[in-house]
Design a binder for these strands. Structure first.
Lengths: 153, 153
DNA sequence: ATCCAGTGTTGGCCTTGCCAACATAGCCAA
DNA sequence: TTGGCTATGTTGGCAAGGCCAACACTGGAT
């Protein structure tokens, strides 16, 4: 999958030291590893699918709108991803009996199974991604990163 | 300036703690801030333009192909960005006398000026981005990030 | 003289995150 | 009860960023 090159040459020094630049490069590596992981072991599923399966497994059945709100995925993208998941019987969609427009989405046993497989793959990628750091550094990195990721703006 | 929402709800817990997820969120925040900065003070220039100006200022005149190799930007995108920069007279392109097909790109005084302005904007964004961390944490974060960003794979 | 590698350009593709419009369903108030 | 408001799922599209392929050249190397 689209994995950036940056084959040759270093970036201009005014970029090299900047946090935003480094975060971009780290993200590039991260998403490269994830992309490769999904490609090799994901059977065509993408990160959206994983997120939705995880949400369903953790919070139980939900409407598509709820799913979108809680995962931060747009309604339209939720629809598309669920259609895909349903076609693989990893998920079931049924009409809400008390609200005919709404659909209740449920993860199937096969969906849970697939989710656990993906978990393993993704855990492996975490190790690979963090490999350049010692265990203590990894903990520290995640601590700092959490602060930054959750910041107000 | 596409800035993600994630209005409601936390992510599933299996995502929250993972480094790749956090890096993605941090990158989202980073690129959101950068996008806003370019939008407000960038006069329509984007990150490609900044990278090219920076490369030209730091390494001096270069051919487009060299520029692409050294900044990691695709040849075709280099062309498009340079056309834009040239139309604002931030850059000059002239035929290489000893290789008629090649073009030598040079940054103009106005280009340097614009670059320095953008530098200020981007420096401000660094502060904003790193604000949740103490100064010591910021140094540590950048150190760890550098290791991760530059890793082999 | 011929082939090959490099150069700039055009045009296209894919992915991720969005938004807008639509038809429909339920709800609340007047 | 009727009207309006909001919520829901769906379709279709858009934009930015990162790519690739093809093309017409140019200059060297063989």
């Amino acid at each position: 999958m689209p994995l950036p090159r940056h084959d040759t040459g270093r970036a201009p020094t005014r970029l090299e030291g900047r946090a935003t630049w480094l975060v971009g490069r780290a993200y590039l590596r991260s998403s490269g590893l994830l992309g490769a992981g999904f490609e090799n072991h994901g059977d065509g599923l993408r990160s959206y699918h994983y997120r939705l399966l995880a949400a369903l497994e953790e919070w139980g059945p939900a409407s598509q709108a709820d799913l979108g709100r809680r995962t931060g995925i747009d309604r339209s993208d939720v629809t598309a991803a669920l259609v895909e998941l349903e076609s693989r019987t990893l998920v079931e969609r049924s009409a809400d009996p008390e609200h005919n427009r709404r659909k209740i989405v449920t993860i199937t046993p096969a969906g849970v199974e697939r989710l656990l497989e993906l978990d393993k793959v993704i855990d492996g990628i975490q190790e690979e991604f963090l490999a350049p750091l010692t265990a203590a550094q990894q903990r520290q990195f995640i601590r700092l990163l959490t602060r930054l990721a959750d910041a107000e703006r």
